[in-house]
């Protein structure tokens, strides 16, 4: 048997509202990560509810979008957000502890980011 989980597609502008809602319900943030796509990224925000159900919110952002940080809602988002910012080049604003792309001390800029397709 495997665990069932939900993946819900959302728009990136709703992220703070949804996360705030989750936090009010007593869910915990279990992970955030990004998957690089040409000229943008897909972001995953996973929470676990009180009954330990796994829910993931999935959203797509393009390079020019500036996302608000959810680190004031979930303090443990800082590391995830710094990671997204440093490795994937996702623009995240107002992280409560911003390492300014020096979290992993690497000398390559946004190594996980896929180059934009030609002609775009």
């Amino acid at each position: 048997m495997r665990e069932n989980y939900k993946i819900i597609d959302i728009s990136y502008s709703d992220i703070t509202d949804i996360m705030l809602n989750c936090q009010k319900q007593g869910d915990r943030l279990v992970q955030m990560h990004a998957v690089s796509i040409p000229s943008g990224a897909i972001l995953y925000y996973s929470v676990s509810t009180g009954d330990n159900e796994f829910v993931t919110y999935k959203t797509q952002v393009s390079d020019d979008v500036v996302l608000p940080s959810i680190s004031s809602i979930y303090p443990n988002a800082i590391l995830y957000e710094n990671e997204m910012k440093e490795l994937f080049g996702v623009n995240i604003d107002c992280i409560s502890l911003d390492y300014n792309n020096r979290l992993y001390r690497i000398n390559v800029e946004t190594p996980f980011k896929k180059p934009a397709k030609e002609g775009e």
Binding site: V30, Q31, V35, N76, L79
Partner: peptide
């Protein structure tokens, strides 16, 4: 694969 992601326990326990 396109992406592999591992979220380890310490990564989130650091905040605590």
């Amino acid at each position: 694969l396109d992406r592999v992601r591992v979220r380890t326990p310490t990564f989130t326990n650091l905040t605590s």
